[in-house]
């Protein structure tokens, strides 16, 4: 198993609060890694470190390293947009860009210097098909994305992320705002996508984790309690806290 991201001795505080404590973790390439943990344990923060959106927050101090293909992205000289581009983000609720459906996908290409209309059109079609949205929207590409249903919007956001050809997809409870059908669609897509991408997903739904996880990380109060392959984690948990969490007698 090859690791795509390697987090080493990561510590993070916001103001005086230490949010992440000594995180060491290897995220395997071309697999679905699920991050579990009770609310407020730092899952979102960890994801934000990976694509360095944490830089947008106030009063943050970070130590440690995060290696992406041997480049330490916390201490790199290369530009941040370039790093962020490598990691698509799917957030808790969809944030389509305030433009029409077509431009939502074209935007990522344009800002990355692709202005050829044919290439853009093909990419729009290809990526919308990727997320099974093409049939639903192909005749209304010029409509504002905000008119789509929440489930459609979330798929659009996934397509938008895929269009800039990331290597990793970060998802923060991507199905929590969705109806069961849309959730299943996203789940299925994730499993397919791991052929090409490395996926990291935060979720609160244990059953969902069991369905799609290859690798599982369990966090508690800013620390990683346990991590391992899905089989190990769900069937032979080592830590008491993990067991308690899996049995649902937490909190």
């Amino acid at each position: 198993m090859k690791s795509k991201i390697s987090i080493q001795n990561l510590n993070l505080s916001i103001g005086k609060n230490q949010i992440l404590k000594n995180i060491n973790l290897d995220i395997p390439e071309n697999q679905v890694t699920i991050i579990l943990g009770p609310s407020g344990c730092g899952k979102t923060t960890l994801l934000k470190c990976l694509n360095r959106l944490i830089d947008l927050e106030e009063n943050v101090t970070i130590t440690g390293s995060i290696f992406l293909d041997n480049e330490d992205i916390l201490h790199t000289k290369s530009d941040l947009p370039g790093i962020r581009k490598k990691m698509g983000l799917l957030s808790q609720r969809p944030y389509p860009l305030p433009m029409n459906i077509y431009d939502n996908i074209a935007y990522g290409l344009r800002i990355n210097g692709i202005h050829n209309k044919h290439i853009i059109r093909e990419s729009v079609e290809h990526n919308l098909k990727q997320v099974n949205l093409w049939d639903e929207v192909q005749h209304r590409l010029k409509e504002p994305a905000s008119r789509l249903s929440i489930g459609q919007q979330q798929r659009l956001c996934l397509a938008r992320g895929l269009a800039v050809k990331p290597e990793i997809i970060l998802a923060d409870e991507p199905t929590s705002a969705l109806d069961p059908l849309s959730s299943t669609a996203i789940e299925k897509k994730f499993v397919e996508l791991k052929e090409e991408y490395t996926l990291v997903m935060v979720t609160h739904i244990l059953r969902q984790a069991r369905r799609i996880a290859d690798y599982v990380v369990f966090m508690y109060l800013g620390e990683i309690v346990e991590h391992g392959t899905a089989d190990e984690f769900f069937n032979h948990p080592k830590q008491e806290k993990t067991k308690a969490y899996l049995e649902g007698i937490f909190n």
Binding site: P81, S91, G108
Partner: peptide, 8 residues
């Protein structure tokens, strides 16, 4: 965050 994560 959405915009930044696309590489803008």
């Amino acid at each position: 965050e959405a915009s930044m994560s696309l590489g803008s």
